[in-house]
């Protein structure tokens, strides 16, 4: 162990702890905005599902619940490794923290690969949103189901990608010795974001894949 830089808090805070608490609250508030954004889109989808249950059922048949379930497990596991990453950095175990974060990053990658396989197979069957839909299935308004499917999973996938970028950035900063037992705000902030991404998927999976 060598160069843990001592973190100096900004001039307008009383102490490093004061700064940490404030930053954490900021991140949580940002999560609230994320929840509302996804919430609105999910609300739109729920209205669609209630008004056109047949269409939703027909659409869900094209989705493979095996893929979805696998991805759910992957993300749940990544949340565990994320939590471990925060745990280790607070103990100054920077190598262990980096390995945990690396595993989280890998999980994100696996998730996106599975998503890629799912997307390509759907696109090859012409199961595209709205006006671009070319599949022969003539269930009324089926293209709308795929509009919601792509919007919801696309927005979520974008968040996974952003989360992966943030994790990579945090790993680099840990390598530079920016974080340690006296300052881990960034790690925890990214952790909160990653848990939210996980949480959103836990809602998306049953609502999209498991339509009865």
């Amino acid at each position: 162990m060598s160069t843990v830089k001592t973190h100096k808090h900004a001039f307008h805070f009383d102490s490093a702890d004061h700064e940490y608490e404030s930053s954490k609250q900021g991140v949580w508030l940002f999560m609230v905005t994320e929840v509302l954004m996804f919430g609105a889109l999910l609300m739109g989808y729920m209205i669609f599902k209630v008004t056109m249950p047949e269409t939703a059922r027909a659409g869900a048949e094209y989705l493979s619940w095996q893929f979805g379930a696998f991805n759910t497990v992957v993300l749940l596991f990544s949340s565990l490794t994320m939590a471990l990453g925060i745990y280790y950095i607070r103990l100054d175990k920077r190598k262990a923290a980096q390995i945990s974060l690396g595993l989280t990053l890998l999980c994100g990658l696996i998730f996106m690969c599975v998503k890629y396989i799912e997307y390509t197979s759907k696109i090859s069957h012409g199961l595209l949103p709205g006006a671009m839909f070319t599949n022969a299935n003539e269930t009324v308004n089926l293209p709308l189901y795929f509009s919601f499917y792509y919007c919801l999973t696309g927005l979520h996938g974008l968040h996974v990608l952003i989360g992966m970028g943030l994790i990579a950035w945090i790993m680099i900063r840990i390598g530079k010795g920016h974080y340690g037992s006296n300052h881990w705000t960034g790690v925890e902030g990214v952790g909160i974001f990653w848990h939210l991404v996980d949480l959103v998927w836990i809602y998306l999976f049953p609502l999209l894949y498991l339509v009865e």
């Binding site: 609105a40 709205g130 006006a131 671009m132 009324v140 293209p143």
Partner: peptide
């Protein structure tokens, strides 16, 4: 504001790709 955000994004997607969520011609 996040609700406006997603609404405007859907509107852009509607205008660019025709996803149909708000378009009666596509069942929206």
């Amino acid at each position: 504001t996040p609700v406006l955000g997603i609404t405007l994004l859907l509107l852009v997607a509607e205008r660019v790709m025709g996803i149909g969520i708000f378009d009666p011609a596509l069942g929206g």
